[in-house]
Every structure is written in C-alpha cells, then in structure tokens.
Design a protein around this nucleic acid. Structure first.
Length: 442
RNA sequence: GUCCCCAUCGUCUAGCCCGGUUAGGACACUACCCUUUCACGGUAAGAACCGGGGUUCGAAUCCCCGUGGGGACGCCA
C-alpha cells in the first residue's frame, strides 16, 4: 500500500481546544506510526469568522504540543497552497468537472450538488460498516461565490491525496455528503476513522471552546508540560491495551494504531490530567526542571527586578519539586524563600499558638540554632532532636512553631530542608520577628 | 421530529472480535504505614458489566427489543 497521508484541517474561527488537539494528535500519531505524511490544512473559507489571531493560536498550540507537520503553512509541500482561502482556482476546476457531468444546478444564486440518493456505505476503521442515505441536494458554492466546507473538504482530500480521514464522530453523519462527492468525481474513498468525542466534565454534551479547561493555550500559560498533556490526551479514546499510562512519546507512537481506538465518547477529567502532569514534573531531572521552572517564574514576573542567586534558586526549586502538580503552583509554594513579608496563615497560627508554649520553644530553638550545623538536613534534624531530649520536649513542639515562623504556613517541603536552604541567619531573623509580634509577654 | 453512533467501577479504561476471568489497571475517594505537618511514596479497602428477552451446558462477551447518552440534520466548519 502507498504511503499514508493524513491531515488535520482546523478552521481558525476560535481558540484551539482539547477536542481539536486530540484529533490533531491522533492524525499525527498515525502518521508517525506508519511513517506517513501529516498535513496541516487551514479551512478558512468562512471569511466572516476567521481571524489571524486564531490562526496563530493553532500554529503555536501544535508546535507547543510537539506536533510538527510535513506539509502545510510554513513548510510547503507538493500539494499547496495549504490555506483554502488561496485555493480558489482548484475549486473552480473541480466545480467545472461536476458541472459538466450535470451534477450541479443554480438556485437562489447558490450552486447545489445533485445527489445520487444511493445508500452511502463506508467501512469505518473504528466503527465498521456504516450506512446512511443522503436525502437532499446541498449547497456547494454560496451565492457570494465562496465554496462550502463539504465541497472544499472533499476536493482537498482528493487533490492532496489524503488516504485516511481521521476526524471526530460529529462528522460521521456528514460523511454521506462527502462520499456522494467522491463518487461524483469518480474517485475512490479514503479510509475513514471517526474517533469518539470528548465530553465536558460537568454537565451534558461534548466539550466546547467555552468549557472549563477546554483551551490548550490555557495549559501552556499555567505551566503544564506538553508531554503530559499529549500523554493524557492520547489516553482519551485510545488505549495501548497493556495497562501502561505514563509512556514516552516514542512508545506511544510505536503502539498507536487505529484498531486500538474505542468507540464510545470519553469524559474529560482535569484531575487525571493534573496527576499526569505531576508525574512528569516529578520524574524530571533537576537539570531540566530547574531552568524550566525558572523560565516560568521569570515570565510571570515572580522575581521582579531583584537579581536571583542561581544556586539558591536551584536549592529552593529542587526542594519543592515534589510538592507541585503544575508550575502554576510554584509562586505560592516558594514565595517565602524570596521575601520577608510573607503572610502568616491565621488558621495555622491559631492552631500553633493554642498548644503549649510555642514562643518558649521558639526561643529555645533559636538559641540551639546558634551552634547547629546547617550543611545537611540530617545534621539539622540531629540538632533539633538533641534539643528536644535536653528540654524534655517532642521534636514536633519545635517543628510546628518553627515552620510557621519561617514560612507562615503549616504545609510545605521538609522542615529541615527549609531551614537548610534558608540558612541560619534568615531563620533566626524570622524567628525573632515572629516572637516580637506574637509573644504574649509585653 | 428524522437519521447516525455508542453503552464495564464516580471518571479514563482492559477483557468482547475467537462465549467458561476471584471482571484487571489508573485517577478520585477512604483507612493504615512512612515523614511527628502537608505532599510524594507504600499497603489495603470500597466501587462496574444499563434493563428485558433470546441463542447456549454456560453470556460482560453473540442476536433482538427497550432505555439511556452522544452526534448530525446551515448559503458554519
């Protein structure tokens, strides 16, 4: 069989969303799996609703997710141009073929296609045999002279020698129009593969651009890993059948195939996506994680104009690496490492202050820290344990007020790690400040 | 309304094609362990074959009918 040629054909009429990304991904994966060609074609025949901004979002999102196209805008190819708005002469030629075959007629200024009315049968790669009979002639050229989706879609698939049409199930009912056209051109049908839809996580219906968590650029902005999103997305409607979930892209490409795609719609679950993203973050080597996190924080203006010490930042980031599900949680998680004016969580404070004599413990801790070895977590732990034994206290009696005094919250990375990274001077200063504002004594 | 597609834990799914499983995994949830926090990690528990008819010794698996869900019915794509 000849080389597989698939295409992703978005129209730039809105932001790029999860459903489109998954359709693109399945096409891309199939092309890479088979050694075929992945074509990007822009379906911009609706002049009213197109915008250059949306077009840019499509390119950016595809690139961000790592889906490179072999033919299409920017890279060219033998079957261009790849924007439908630039293919008018081709559509004229094909229209003429239909006209001379007596398959068109004019009405109200528009050009209609005369259907055969024969039952249209396809052998869908995912759904099997599907039969549907088209009942009405339909418009292929609007009265303003612009050709319509069904027509240009088929003409381009024909002209671009597309072998497999992998698209959402919402097109299944349209397929009878398309096969009518293919047959009118005397052309063989491509292989159709109608993939299940992604349903919104709350409420009925398929996911749309306006739904929570629907936009790809949103995940990019929030610091999700594109590999994690790709991994999550490929598992929505497809399974490697071996219980594997987190897989390297090469593995996904190797295992991906049309028969592995299931037939029922899948509901989007942001919690599972968050978990996948966390898994990617955790497994990332520091050499990659640190610059990535740093870049994200810089873009968000986290450091302001203050220069950061690279070594200190690396310590902070690696200490907190296992604490975040996505990079967007980073600023809140590491803020206290970079500023003295961090807020004290009132609930945590009330809880700590309610038990025993935390201020006395803090004074003891501060004094003990004078001699403590800050070089490793273990030496700090030993120092605090020795202090507890000496005072007849629990280490927890020091840990909880200590954590609150230096970070303002009750949760975070390991207590000793925070002290080690912050360093003696800063820890003592924060304890002093906490004591000054929270001691019951005058 | 007409037509098309689909149906396993709350969610994503394996198993179905080629009938015989304690119906498996993951997310989420719960408990315990670890860390005297939280998270991570570990262990355990709960949790599903939409309903009804067939076929069969035997049905999640094959067939039919319901029901439910989704989609399409534009001079949108």
């Amino acid at each position: 069989m000849s080389q597989v040629r698939v295409r992703f054909a978005p129209s730039p009429t809105g932001f790029f969303h999860i459903g489109s990304a998954r359709t693109a991904l399945f096409n891309w994966l199939y092309a890479r799996h088979t050694g075929g060609v992945f074509i990007l074609r822009i379906e911009d025949t609706d002049k009213e609703r197109n915008s250059e901004e949306f077009l840019r979002v499509i390119y950016d999102s595809l690139r961000w997710l790592g889906m490179d196209w072999d033919e299409g805008p920017g890279v060219g190819g033998s079957f261009g141009p790849y924007r439908q708005s630039e293919r008018a002469p081709i559509y004229r030629d094909y229209l003429e073929r239909l006209r001379s075959a007596g398959r068109t007629y004019e009405k109200d200024g528009a050009t209609f296609f005369r259907i055969s009315g024969e039952p249209q049968v396809i052998d869908d790669a995912i759904r099997g045999r599907v039969e549907r009979t088209e009942e009405k002639d339909f418009v292929i050229v609007r009265s303003d002279g612009n050709p319509v989706f069904h027509f240009v879609n088929v003409v381009d698939d024909l002209a671009m020698r597309v072998t497999h049409v992998i698209r959402g199930e919402d097109h299944l009912s349209n397929t009878s129009k398309h096969t009518e056209l293919f047959r009118a051109f005397g052309a063989p049908l491509p292989v159709y593969a109608h993939i299940p839809l992604i349903l919104k996580q709350n409420g009925p219906g398929k996911m749309s651009k306006r739904d929570q968590g629907a936009l790809i650029e949103e995940y990019q902005r929030r610091g999700f890993q594109p590999e994690a999103l790709v991994n999550f997305l490929c598992l929505l409607g497809w399974s490697p059948k071996n219980d594997a979930e987190k897989m390297p892209l090469e593995e996904i490409i190797r295992l991906f195939d049309l028969p592995g795609i299931n037939q029922s719609n899948a509901r989007f679950d942001e919690r599972k996506l968050a978990h996948m993203n966390m898994a990617y973050l955790h497994d990332m080597p520091a050499a990659r994680y640190v610059p990535l996190a740093r870049g994200f924080l810089e873009r968000g203006g986290f450091f302001g104009t203050t220069p950061v010490d690279a070594d200190y930042l690396r310590e902070v980031l690696t200490l907190c690496q296992v604490k975040v599900r996505s990079l967007e949680e980073l600023p809140a998680a590491i803020g206290f490492f970079f500023r003295e004016d961090f807020a004290i969580d009132p609930k945590a404070r009330d809880k700590v202050l309610a038990k025993g004599d935390p201020c006395a413990r803090l004074r003891e801790l501060r004094a003990a820290l004078e001699q403590a070895d800050f070089s490793t977590d273990a030496t700090l732990e030993a120092a605090v344990q020795a202090l507890a034994v000496q005072q007849g206290m629990q280490t927890a009696d020091y840990i909880h007020p200590g954590r609150l005094a230096v970070s303002g919250v009750s949760a975070g990375p390991t207590f000793y790690g925070i002290f080690r990274v912050l360093g003696r001077e800063r820890v003592q200063r924060r304890i002093d400040r906490f004591l000054a504002s929270h001691s019951p004594t005058p």
